[in-house]
Design a protein around this nucleic acid. Structure first.
Lengths: 261, 261
DNA sequence: TTTCTTTGTTGCTCATAGTGCAACTATAAC
DNA sequence: GTTATAGTTGCACTATGAGCAACAAAGAAA
């Protein structure tokens, strides 16, 4: 087996069918679609997709709507979800804290951890404004363009920081910080103030405010953020929101410490 | 390709490597382990597992501890978890309700839906008794031996019910109901009383109480349950617990109806 | 209704991609 | 130091997975 180029190129050898199966799962995670459609997106033959999907279906990782219908992510996936959540105790502990804060603030609240240069949301509670609330769980977001991300970056050893950001800063909106030096300044401010913001730096019209969560060793283990539409989560609300978030962060710290972290 | 027997035997053809990869994920969901160990459990060669695992790792579905260490489920899995959760709005809605009930009752609270003959827990909040709280999310549990399962079965059309249970009733403890006729009687009682119990029918020492959650059409869409150790969640507490659970179930119903279900 | 299109499934065939082997390396145990 | 254990990788073989094409089922159009 050579496997020179599959999706990109890897040094060791990737198992092609598994790699493709995962890609299919990722596509389906973004919405249901049919075999033909998937085949087009993957650049492979219908039949190939049909068999891959069949295998995934046999294990409940995808579901078929009707006899010959379209496919979507299946409930079997929850099995794994539970396992990850169990491993990261911060997920368990984060949920109730998110819920409470979301209730108080009326905005969507997330707990995120850092994974290389991305912030990953691990718990979430939706705000009271029922509709259009996006699901962020498991989402990898670029740390330099999000409030949580900045809260996490601001407390890293400078050496590691540079390494992480070596890839360059991608721009998402006109307000995204793309200059490493500027980002450095901003992060310095975050470390001093104890909170970070992202006002339309990731998506137009989206505001977010975040604070760090400290582990018992004084290190930053996560960030907790509130996010909502620009007109509702305005700059004026910063003091109020930060205060609430800090309370939540402290509670999270305490509970984690209690569990032996 | 023939693929006559891989794990069992399927009529259409399974993609072997994908099937194996999923098995690996399932193993890792139950705890971290090494390549050699996995290879033994799968009955394949180390190298095969090493490559499969590498592929999974490249997509963050598994994580390696250290350079050449053991493997465990990875954060990337959360991406998919979020997707499932987004599809089943009951997950979103169920979480806060679970949290609240768990707080009041001090026991673990779960929301479950029916998937063929199994009850699957889709949301969960842990009780106050911090330790030893098991993670049930995504777990498929045999409906005839669990409180949630019985609450779900009790409101099914009798025809479908018989079909579901045609496979026979597996016994888990001395108290598990294994006689279909007896189960029928019990379910009738559940439908009348409006709640179901499982006292050491799934695991010795484990008690659970559940009530159904109705959809806007009057059909049962889920069940909500409280579970805990036998000595704490005793029969005496049934009235109290049922009352709380009913309140939660009603809230869940209302919220779901509000969302258009 | 019939016909035309589209989409998912399946038998067949070929060659690629995946597996097993074995040698290699790194880490841990003694 | 030696030995044992566990993960990775080059190589060779063939079982396995992918593509093709014919088929079946379900809609859409006429």
């Amino acid at each position: 087996m050579s496997n020179k180029e599959t999706t990109g190129e890897r040094e060791p050898t990737l198992v092609q069918s598994v790699d493709r199966a995962i890609t299919i799962l990722e596509l389906l995670a973004r919405g249901e679609r049919g075999v033909t459609e998937i085949a087009a997106e993957l650049g492979v033959h219908k039949s190939t997709v049909s068999r891959l999907v069949y295998t995934l279906q046999a294990r409940q990782l995808v579901e078929q709507h009707g006899e010959r219908g379209r496919f979507s992510i299946g409930i079997g996936m929850l099995r794994f979800a539970g396992a990850v959540a169990g491993q990261l105790d911060i997920v368990q502990v984060g949920n109730p804290v998110c819920e409470e804060l979301a209730g108080r603030l009326g905005e969507t609240v997330n707990v995120a951890v850092l994974d290389s240069a991305n912030a990953i949301n691990v718990s979430q509670a939706l705000g009271t404004s029922a509709v259009a609330a996006q699901n962020w769980i498991g989402q990898r977001t670029p740390s330099h363009a999000t409030a949580s991300g900045k809260a996490l970056l601001a407390f890293m050893p400078p050496g590691e920081l540079d390494e992480l950001l070596a890839g360059g800063l991608v721009s998402y909106t006109a307000r995204t910080i793309t200059d490493p030096q500027e980002l450095g300044e901003v992060l310095k401010g975050v470390a001093e103030d104890g909170y970070a913001t992202s006002f339309e730096e990731l998506e137009p019209g989206l505001h977010a405010i975040a604070v760090p969560v400290f582990g018992s060793g004084g290190d930053v283990i996560a960030a907790i953020s509130a996010s909502g539409p620009a007109y509702r989560l305005s700059r004026k609300r910063i003091p109020e929101v930060v205060e609430e978030l800090r309370r939540g962060a402290r509670e999270l710290s305490d509970r984690m410490a209690y569990m032996g972290r």
